[in-house]
Amino acid sequence: MAYSDKVIEHYENPKNVGTLGKDEDDVGTGLVGAPACGDVMRLQIRVKDGVITDAKFKTFGCGSAIASSSLATEMIKGMTIEQAGTIKNTQIVEELNLPPVKIHCSVLAEDAIKAAIEDYKKKHAR
């Protein structure tokens, strides 16, 4: 599988790898799994006044899955949670030049963003 330069760049030098305290009130955690590849992706956001101030991820999967989640965290930082919720996987595909067989990796990243926002909202629904 020939990876694009952008995928390799994010894979070799991933941005925002790490963990935020999942029990903290201002943190939302999205944990998603793609069973076909045995991949697992955790994406976390820290939110202040409706704006994502920090994002971290940890992905165990192929290079495209790692690059997709790295890029996703870059994209959503500084966005409102509403804006982040409208991010489409196609933006990730375009940015990383993902081949058709790797599009599902970008979908996983989109799902992870949505799951993190969902988790944050659930914490604040009370």
């Binding site: 998603v32 799994g33 793609a34 069973p35 076909a36 697992v40 940890k58 165990f60 979908v107």
Partner: peptide, 22 residues
């Protein structure tokens, strides 16, 4: 079949795998 767009909706299992991978 187990398709590319299939999701495993089992947070406990995924968390366990993530921790073991770490």
């Amino acid at each position: 079949t187990i398709g590319d767009h299939e999701r495993l909706d089992d947070a406990a299992f995924l968390m366990e795998i993530l921790e073991l991978r770490e």
